[in-house]
Amino acid sequence: MTTLGALVQKVRSKNAGPFWLTIDIFCGSEAAYQEVLGQLKTQKIAQVLGANTQDIKRFDIPSLNVIKISLPRPTIQGSIKDRDMHGASWAALIAEMNL
């Protein structure tokens, strides 16, 4: 099996305010974008991230060869239980995901 990170140019995650995270998948080419688009299922993303499928917002942007995923943070940014204040570690979970 191939990981998502091996197929794309870059996977990045960051805060989208104190209550949301956003993950950007930069495919780098139209061919890679089409391959990832056909294999990357929102249900699998939810499973890997421990989120509810209905809470995930997905934006497929063919003009940029980018897939953007937004989801609620499991804890509010900066709260005592927040282990990733900047939201950067979520990219690794997605990049290591098998397609």
Rank of each mutant, 00 (worst) to 15 (best):
T2P: 15
T3I: 13
L4T: 13
L4E: 03
G5S: 00
G5V: 06
A6N: 11
A6C: 03
L7P: 14
V8W: 02
V8P: 03
V8G: 01
Q9S: 12
R12S: 09
K14M: 08
K14E: 01
K14V: 03
K14G: 02
N15P: 09
N15A: 13
A16N: 00
A16W: 02
A16P: 00
G17Q: 12
P18W: 05
F19L: 15
F19Q: 15
L21K: 12
L21C: 04
L21Q: 05
L21N: 08
T22M: 09
I23N: 00
I23C: 09
D24F: 03
I25Q: 03
I25W: 02
F26Y: 13
C27S: 05
A31S: 14
A32Y: 02
A32I: 11
Y33R: 12
Q34L: 11
E35M: 15
E35V: 01
E35Y: 04
V36I: 08
V36H: 02
V36W: 11
L37H: 08
G38P: 11
Q39K: 15
Q39S: 03
Q39D: 06
Q39E: 06
L40C: 02
L40Q: 00
K41S: 07
Q43G: 08
I45G: 00
I45F: 00
A46D: 06
Q47N: 15
Q47I: 12
Q47C: 11
V48T: 14
L49Q: 10
L49S: 00
L49R: 10
G50D: 12
A51L: 12
T53E: 14
T53V: 15
T53M: 11
Q54Y: 06
Q54N: 15
I56G: 07
K57D: 01
K57G: 14
R58G: 08
R58H: 09
R58W: 01
R58D: 05
R58M: 13
R58Q: 15
F59R: 06
F59N: 07
D60F: 00
D60A: 08
D60K: 04
I61M: 08
I61R: 03
I61N: 02
L64S: 00
L64G: 05
N65M: 10
N65C: 14
N65L: 01
K68L: 04
K68W: 10
K68V: 11
I69D: 02
I69H: 07
S70Y: 09
S70T: 08
L71K: 01
L71V: 14
L71Y: 03
L71Q: 05
P72D: 10
P72S: 11
P72E: 04
P74R: 05
T75I: 06
T75Y: 08
T75Q: 08
I76D: 08
Q77I: 07
Q77M: 15
G78E: 06
S79R: 00
S79W: 03
K81I: 06
K81F: 10
R83M: 06
R83C: 05
R83A: 10
G87E: 12
G87Y: 13
G87D: 07
A88C: 02
S89E: 05
W90S: 02
W90H: 04
A91W: 11
A91M: 07
A92G: 02
L93E: 04
A95S: 15
M97I: 13
N98D: 14
L99R: 08
